[in-house]
Structure formats: structure tokens, C-alpha cells
Design a protein around this nucleic acid. Structure first.
Lengths: 197, 197
DNA sequence: ACCTGAACACCGTTCAAGT
DNA sequence: ACCTGAACACCGTTCAAGT
């Protein structure tokens, strides 16, 4: 036993992460266990602890990667006639990401280890909010940055809330179609109200 | 052993529920185990399965009770000058409930068993939404019920989203104070926008 | 009939021991 | 130095056995 450097630590780390992502995607967060990951990559349980300090650490990194994917997708969103249309498109993309990557997206908010959130993770979250914040600042440049940021935060939390309750099943109803319309209503009415404030 | 009817099944059920609530309140959802509940009520693990079919069933009932408490608190909200003020007050109460009963409120949305949601639970959720829906119907009686309901759903999901991201820690920032202002902004701007639509 | 508690099949985590 | 795999302290769930 004790196979000798068939893979570098870096490679094993990558294998672990990608196996974990597959498991979450296909079977949900609750199916993610060290033993299953080990089996999938052809190593034993102990090896996972060479490259991650524990399960919480692994989870945090799977979540971090999901945030990166989400950020990439939001930043891909091209130019638009108006800022409103741009914000609307971002909200739709967010919903679409949550819909297409349901299990992984869900995990971001459900896997709450009581462990303190690491700095590098906090920064990823802030980057995401920043995307919307700058648009709100440009929407009403005469306002203080703080006020625009609060509005961005309010609306984006709102969009998130619609996604949560629409895709959860723990809500009342609807699939992705209804959710799209609901998100649209939230964004449109909030922006109209905010511009008139 | 095999103590003979010191308590009725109904009493044991109540003891289990209330012990479970205490554990969640004090130590969080992840600390809720059959063994801990059994210890707390002075029975053994097996007994819990006399009054609940399994852990998921117990969880569902703890969640159901939390929904009841929340509904009571929202319905207590008295009369107001305007419908807007009433909706605003409801949103603040919702935030306050989430803040004061953080662990139990969190559990409602984090404890997602892949088991299908029972009918009685769905109904409780619907009752909650109904509270806001009727207010929106009265705010613009000329609209179809469906449209008012969609708006209510959009805003309330939004309010929920602010609570989630504000109290989570997985967000970026803020405690309950900031959240109050953010909820206020969301409600005010959305309603203004919706009335002008 | 009510309740126990051992048994089963799982967890995450550790660490002496092998190569 | 890298990796194993048995061991430990936990889970939820079941069910023969005791009163």
C-alpha cells in the first residue's frame, strides 16, 4: 500500500474538489461524505485530510468555486440599452444560475458551518455584490455611494429571496417560469420606486 | 424497565417537541439529535419513534410550530393609517421574528429533507403569504387578484431574502439594524413603484 | 401495551503502521 | 514522505426482549 506520488498534492486536491462538486450536483449536499469522495477518486479517507483540514474546509472551497462560476456568468452579461435592462438581465442570470446549478447554489446558503467564514470567501461575496452596486451608483450618480449600495443590497437580497422561495419547494408554488416573472416584477417595481424617491 | 404509562403518548409527543425546540434554540439545528432529545425527556431513543415516524417527521413538526408562532405574531399587528404602513410593519415584524428566533427561523429554510412536504405544512405556508396578499389586493383593488398576489409574493420573498443574507453571516455584513433599514428601503421603493405601474 | 437497549449501517476524524 | 486502514466517538433507525 501507501502508493507513492501517483499524483501531486495539488492534483489530489483538484480531484477531491471536482469529485465533491459532482456528488453535490448529482445527489445533493447531504450526500457529500468524505468516504464517498475517497471512493470516487480512488484514495482512502485519510488522504482527503492531507489536502483539506476537514470537511468544513472542503465545503467552503466547493462553495467558493460556485461563487466564482456565478461571478463569471454575471460578468459575461454584455452591454444593454439602459442600466435598468442591465440590472434586469443580471437578476435573470442569477435566477438561471440557481436553477441550472440548483444543488450547488443551494449549498452556498444551506451549508452553514458554525466555523467563522474565511476572509477569502467574504471577499468573493463582496465582489458579487459589487457588480450590482456599481450599476446602482450609475443609475443615480447624485446620491451618496452608501445610499446606492443600500438599494443594490436591498434589491439583490430580494432577488435572492425570490430564488430561494421559488426553487425551494418549501415555499408554496411555482417553478422557474413563475420565478422569472416574480423576479421581473421585483426588479422593475423596485427600480421605478427608487428612481422616484 | 419498560416504564408503564407515566405519560400518555400525547404528553410524550409534546415533551419531545418542546425538548427539540429548546435544543434548536440554544444550540442550533445541527445539535438536534434523537439521542439528545431522548436524554432530555428521560426516555430512550426508541420511544421517540412511538410518537414520530422518524427524524424528518419531528423536524417538520418543529418547523410547523415555528410557522404558527410567526403567523400569530404577524396577525397581532394592529391597525394602521395606511396599507403601506401596515405592510411595512409586517416586514419589520418578520425581520424581528427571524432575529429573535434565529436558530428556529433558520431551520425552516435550511432543514430541507428530500421527503415531500406534507399538505398540512404547505397550508401553513400559504396562510402566511395570504396575510400579505390581502393587503396588496386592497392596495390596488382594480387589478386582478393574481397580479396583486404576484406582487405580494415578490415583495415578501424579497423581505425574506434580506433577512436571510443579513442574519446569515454568509452575506457580507451588518446586523439587525442595517437589516431594518434595508427591509424598509425594499418595501417602500417596491410599493411606490408598484402603485405607479 | 409500553418501553428498553443492543445491534446495524452509517458518519467525520485521527494516527500508528506500512512502503 | 505519502498513504493506508483500523479505531474512536458519534449518527438515525430497528426490533427482539423484558415488564
Amino acid at each position: 500500500m501507501a502508493r507513492r506520488s501517483e499524483h501531486t498534492q495539488e492534483q489530489i486536491r483538484e480531484m477531491v474538489l471536482s469529485a465533491a462538486e459532482n456528488i453535490v450536483n448529482e445527489e445533493g449536499f447531504s450526500a457529500l461524505t468524505v468516504r464517498k469522495v475517497a471512493l470516487e477518486i480512488g484514495y482512502t479517507v485519510g488522504s482527503i485530510y492531507m489536502v483539506f483540514t476537514n470537511m468544513d474546509d472542503l465545503i467552503m472551497h466547493v462553495k467558493g468555486r460556485a461563487l466564482d462560476e456565478l461571478a463569471d456568468e454575471l460578468q459575461e452579461t454584455g452591454d444593454f440599452d439602459s442600466l435598468e435592462a442591465h440590472i434586469q438581465a443580471l437578476a435573470e442570470r442569477y435566477l438561471s444560475f440557481a436553477h441550472c446549478n440548483f444543488n450547488r447554489w443551494r449549498m452556498i446558503f444551506e451549508a452553514i458551518n458554525d466555523v467563522p467564514v474565511p476572509d477569502w470567501y467574504q471577499r468573493k461575496v463582496q465582489e458579487l455584490f459589487a457588480i450590482v452596486e456599481t450599476l446602482f451608483q450609475r443609475l443615480r450618480p447624485e446620491l451618496a455611494e452608501d445610499e446606492a449600495n443600500r438599494a443594490a443590497h436591498a434589491l439583490w437580497s430580494g432577488v435572492h429571496g425570490v430564488c430561494v422561495l421559488s426553487l425551494n419547494g418549501s415555499l408554496g408554488r411555482s417553478g422557474a417560469d413563475n420565478a422569472r416573472a416574480t423576479v421581473g416584477s421585483l426588479v422593475q417595481n423596485f427600480i421605478r420606486g427608487w428612481k422616484a424617491s
